[in-house]
Design a protein around this nucleic acid. Structure first.
Lengths: 229, 229
DNA sequence: GGACGTAATATGGTCAACCAAATCAAAAAT
DNA sequence: ATTTTTGATTTGGTTGACCATATTACGTCC
């Protein structure tokens, strides 16, 4: 893809240890290092030059012109969430959760610490007493994120944060947060408990199945058809 | 000098009266209007595209962007990749793939179009002939992204792009790209074929299993212990 | 040994030819 | 008469060859 080289060039710069004013390797060398054609590298560098990141001089070389902007991971993730929420509907978000969260639950059954499991229990309890749907959704979001956090994989946690953020954004759009919260018989309560029971039993398959059942139940409550198998 | 074409292109756009989403004249016509070479015009348009001002599509033309959001999202994803790659090791990236990519393969068996499957076949073939590990990794990345793209869920595709971007970044750190490429007996080749066979048979469970086997195989090649079940 | 001039080499820049994707028009099939 | 297929054309994308600028190496002179 055409943006791939640009991404890789950004990363190369970030990891190069070069300081402002220092000279990059020649294009002909760097394009081999990156495994791209020189023309593709030049395109990426053209964009970076336009952004003020690089300065390029014929016969002299390419130089880092300014300190690269520090990459703030939290900001980047927030922006990513905002952008994705613009092109994601509630059902699609739900289906994406169905792909990822059972896998997370499976890993959490293996990797979750007692402290992390206790926190999930507290969140599940708090959800039963949620005074509004708004409060419920926040707690639910935290519950699911706590599961992801206990998966033992920071990259999966980050991916889940994005997924969770998109989902929460999409949900907030149509939620009347001043409504009274869920009834005591709300289906998710028992489903959360089933997930937690499996996690506490360290039963990965049961945790995965419980999470699947929970998300499918929620998906069907949304009036969405099940996947046409 | 080199910024003159960019400035002239900006002015041309401002004075064109074109509305968001409208199509610009073809490059070959517009470069004559501006009195510059097509290559020079293309450089200017590359920068404007990176800024989100223009959208360029092969065979269709160049358009004034409807909204800057897509590039904002793209930029945010790039930054997210950069940030996450700083805190992710190769094994962790691999394990995250193991959580997500079999699920994607399962969905792709259901949703993938014949054209998308053909593209994967082409990529798998190209990988067998990769002249270097660097080229192989790029093709492999594209292969796995093609699978994610065929899953039918744009949010999962975005998550996979992040995962794939992190993975590629992490891999590049330790890859000697000038090495000769993989041998004909490299294990991933047959594993890719097994995945594709399952996808073409529309067998979701087989696709999921084949992807799991492929990723586990790669993970074990990395010298990592399997998950301690 | 140092200064100067020239040639060779290195580095980024440009371009015409060709490639890849999409659209349109004409021919063939139903 | 309508639909589908095929070929031609249009449009943006890529690449190797060559160009323009800067640096380095070498030879000559003092």
């Amino acid at each position: 893809m055409k943006d791939k080289v640009l991404i890789r060039m950004r990363n190369w710069i970030a990891e190069s240890g070069l300081v402002k004013g220092e000279r990059l390797p020649p294009e002909r060398a760097l394009c081999e290092t990156l495994g791209v054609s020189r023309a593709e590298l030049r395109k990426a560098n053209l964009v970076l030059e336009a952004e003020g990141v690089l300065e390029r001089h014929v016969g002299r070389g390419t130089f880092l012109s300014k300190a690269p902007r520090p990459v703030n991971g939290h900001d980047a993730i927030e922006r990513t969430i905002s952008a994705l929420a613009e092109s994601t509907g509630p059902v699609e978000a739900m289906q994406a959760r169905l792909a990822l969260e059972p896998e997370l639950a499976k890993l959490t059954a293996l990797h979750g610490t007692p402290m992390q499991l206790r926190k999930m229990r507290q969140l599940a309890s708090a959800m039963r007493a949620a005074p509004s749907w708004g409060a419920y959704e926040v707690l639910d979001s935290e519950f699911h994120e706590a599961i992801a956090a206990a998966s033992g994989n920071s990259l999966l946690l980050a991916l889940h944060k994005i997924l969770n953020g998109v989902r929460l954004t999409v949900v907030w759009r149509r939620l009347n947060t001043s409504d009274g919260g869920p009834e005591a018989s709300y289906h998710s309560f028992d489903e959360h408990d089933a997930i937690l029971n499996a996690l506490e039993q360290r039963d990965g398959a049961a945790a995965e199945a419980a999470m699947q059942a929970h998300l499918k139940s929620t998906l069907s409550m949304m009036g969405a058809a099940s996947s046409p198998l």
